[in-house]
Design a protein around this nucleic acid. Sequence first.
DNA 1: CCCTTTTCACCTAGGTGGTAAGAT
DNA 2: ATCTTACCACCTAGGTGAAAAGGG
Lengths: 197, 197
Amino acid sequence: NCNLEMKSLWEEFNQLETEMIVTKAGRRMFPSFQVRVYGMDALTEYMMMMDFVPVDDKRYRYSFQSSTWVVSGKADPVMPPRIHVHPDSPAKGSQWMKQVVSFDRLKLTNNQMDDNGHIILNSMHRYQPRFHVLYRNSKDEDPSRTQNFKTFVFPETKFIAVTAYQNHRITQLKIASNPFAKGFREGESQSWSASSA
Amino acid sequence: NCNLEMKSLWEEFNQLETEMIVTKAGRRMFPSFQVRVYGMDALTEYMMMMDFVPVDDKRYRYSFQSSTWVVSGKADPVMPPRIHVHPDSPAKGSQWMKQVVSFDRLKLTNNQMDDNGHIILNSMHRYQPRFHVLYRNSKDEDPSRTQNFKTFVFPETKFIAVTAYQNHRITQLKIASNPFAKGFREGESQSWSASSA
DNA sequence: CCCTTTTCACCTAGGTGGTAAGAT
DNA sequence: ATCTTACCACCTAGGTGAAAAGGG
């Protein structure tokens, strides 16, 4: 089993239609995708990974007039999707369960030629992150037959990839909740308990 | 096979009797232990690790009068030595060979109760770092019978653990060559090609 | 006296959105 | 018009030795 960390923050973003920056060099997600996992076999080895699937085959643009995202055409052609393997993989169930599994080093890029292993997305397209746990029923048997996946999807983590923020309320929420954007805060009244770890 | 990186910098320190700071929280080594490895089987999985063995069973003190280290007694009692496993372990030979293997995140501590997995050393004692490569001849056989070590020792990397630098020339060389100590540089004439990566 | 601990200013390294210029 | 890129000031996070205080 598996729980999404920072669920309330994700929901707050999702209500505004989450945007994630993509750059040529690669940009982290914020919030970062973090889960707590349960019920694994302590001694079995697991691989943890993420990928990103298109929500639909549409392209979007932001209408400043209506302050909403509107369909702007059919989706751009896609590259074969990449998979991000958690850097601690492989590790035993006991290791994964004793702390939050964090994908905070994962980076998104719009560079189709990227050779840094980052996740390649099309800007102005909608994506759904997915979390996969891979395990084997037994160590000694043929790996190709005994490996199994379990996939978790949290609908509140879907987002639109952008090269610059469109919805100003998204920008404000990012500035308010991301510690690295503290330089842009002004009011400084509310404390976002979301800021840490 | 295996080559030490920054060999000339290590030799420069070793001529002055290298000192390494140990703290309660753990302190990185400088220079950090980095090697280039060759001649591995590209598809076999290897573990890389380091440990630190006492050079002798003596305790030392620094004589400011003679500017040398002198024996000050018998060695203090030792804890069962810890082993630092390189965080990329295990990985295939092809992965290890395509870049420098760096132990720059390894930390030394004098805290006998350390629970951060750092290497525990006795201050004012002399140590020799060792580098180990572990591999299996075959994947399917009993691991306990088919695992093998190969150990590499570079005499120029030996050092004395200290809680504060004793030899001022060591301090000067650290300040001149460690990028994080740039704040203490004054002359700023020579460039230590050693500074990067 | 000898050694250790704590705190500090000063760095490296790298993650933010803003901004203006560039591209289509 | 719409979207992308490059650069920037401003942060977080954490690695330095100095200095002063602490301990036996």
